[in-house]
Design a protein around this nucleic acid. Structure first.
Lengths: 217, 217
DNA sequence: ACATGTGAACTGCTTCACAGCG
DNA sequence: CGCTGTGAAGCAGTTCACATGT
C-alpha cells in the first residue's frame, strides 16, 4: 500500500511546490502515453526544469511514493498527484464575461478533461445573452446571484474588462464564491477566505521586456 | 533630477520583484487617471497586496525615487517604472498559432497600448492562412524562418496545441528568437540564452483545486 | 549498486527597525 | 513629524549529502 497522500499535510505547502506538482503530473501523463512504467526523480526533474532533490522534497510533503533503487511507478504517482491536487472530483466552474477570452476559455477542451465542468457563462451584453456556445448558454449577469444561491460554483473565472473586474468579484464573493481565476490585469481586493489566482499577460510580457532590456548590462 | 533608474542594477533582480513592479505601474496609471499627484509606499502596498517595506525595497534596487516625508510623485515614478521594465520602446511580437487563444491575443488592445506591436500571426492551417484579422494577416508557418531572418521579432507568443509547442519553439529559437511567451501547457526545453514565461490555465486551476481541497484540514 | 527520503546547511527573499532627510 | 531608504535579522524555499531500503 503506497497511496498515502494526505496522511501528512501538516505544514503549509508553498505555492511553488503546488505549481511543480502540476508540472510533474502533466509529464507523468505524457510518459504514460509513451508506455513508460517507472520514472526516477531525476528524469522528472530534467523535464520539469528543476532538480531531483527538489522533486523528492516536493513529494515528501505528502508521503512516500517511490521504491528505493527503482523510482516511481508512473500510474501510481499519477494517481497520487491527482489526489493531492484535488483532481479526484469534478469542480463546477462559471465563466464571467463572454468576450474574446471568456469565449476561448469556454471552448477549451482541457477544462472538462481535467474535471473542471463549466456550468454557465455570464455577460451583461443583451446581444450575447441567450446565445449558445456548444452546450453552454450565455446567461444574464443580473441573474448570477440567484443562480449561485441555488448551486454555488467552486470556481469563478473572471474574464471581464479591467474596469468591471472588482465589482464583478465583489458580487461573486458576496454570493458565496471562494475561488477566482482572474484574467483582468488588476489586483483584486478580496477577503482572506477567498483564493485568487491571476493570469496576467501584460505582466508576463513586461517580465520578458525587463529581461530583454537588462540582458547585456 | 530623480530619474536615476538603471544607475544601480548590480545584483540579479528576483522574478517576484519584477512582477510587483508591473503591479505598481498599473496602479500608478490608475491613480494618475484619478488625478493623484503623490503616493506613499504604504498606499502602493495596500493596493498591491504587499507591505510598504517591500515596495521601498523593490524600488531601491533601481534608485531613489521618493521624497522623504512625502512619498512618490505619481508621474515621475510611473515614468521610472516604465523605463525599468523596458517599456520605453516598441517590441515586435509575433503570434504563432491562429486558434482561439491566438486570435483572442491578436485582437487584444492592451498589447499595442503597452508598446508590444504584433507584426504577424502564423499558422499551418491552409484555411486560416491569408485571412485578415483587423490589420494583421495570418501567414504561412512554413515562412516563419524566412520572415524572421529579415526582421527578428523580440518576442514570440506561442499559442499552438501542446503537441506542436516544442517543435514550434525549436524552430523559432533556431531562427533567432530569444523570448517566448508560452500558452501551451507544457514545459518547454530551451537553451540558457532564451527566456520563457508560461501562461498556464490548467496549472492555475489546479492551484485553486489544491487550495479548495486542503482548505479545512 | 541504485535511487529514494530527509535532516542539515545554505541561499535568497521578506520583514524589521531605525537613521536620514525633506 | 512623516515617509523614505537600507543594513540587519528573520524566515522560507532550495540544495546538499547521506543513511536507508530494495
Amino acid at each position: 500500500m503506497i497511496s498515502q497522500a494526505r496522511s501528512h499535510s501538516v505544514k503549509r505547502i508553498a505555492d511553488s511546490t503546488v505549481r511543480r506538482l502540476s508540472a510533474y503530473l502533466r509529464f507523468l501523463e505524457e510518459s504514460a502515453v509513451d508506455g513508460v512504467e517507472t520514472i526516477s526523480s531525476d528524469a522528472l526533474a530534467r523535464r520539469g526544469g528543476t532538480t531531483s532533490a527538489q522533486v523528492r522534497k516536493d513529494l515528501s510533503f505528502f508521503g512516500s511514493f517511490g521504491k528505493r533503487g527503482l523510482g516511481y511507478s508512473v500510474p501510481e504517482l499519477t494517481s497520487s498527484l491527482r489526489d493531492i491536487l484535488g483532481l479526484g472530483r469534478e469542480w463546477n466552474v462559471i465563466i464571467v464575461g463572454a468576450g474574446k477570452i471568456g469565449m476561448a476559455l469556454g471552448q477549451y477542451e482541457g477544462f472538462e478533461q481535467r474535471g473542471f465542468h463549466v456550468t454557465a457563462v455570464y455577460d451583461t451584453d443583451p446581444g450575447k445573452i441567450g446565445t449558445q456556445w456548444g452546450s453552454i448558454l450565455v446567461r444574464d449577469m443580473s441573474r448570477v446571484e440567484a443562480d449561485i444561491a441555488e448551486v454555488t460554483p467552486d470556481i469563478a473565472v473572471l474574464a471581464v474588462p479591467v474596469g468591471e473586474a472588482q465589482d464583478a468579484a465583489d458580487r461573486l464573493i458576496r454570493a458565496g464564491v471562494k475561488a477566482i481565476l482572474n484574467f483582468a490585469p488588476t489586483q483584486l481586493q478580496v477577503p482572506g477566505d477567498v483564493s485568487v489566482r491571476n493570469v496576467n499577460m501584460a505582466m508576463e510580457l513586461e517580465g520578458l521586456s525587463f529581461i530583454l532590456s537588462n540582458r547585456d548590462r
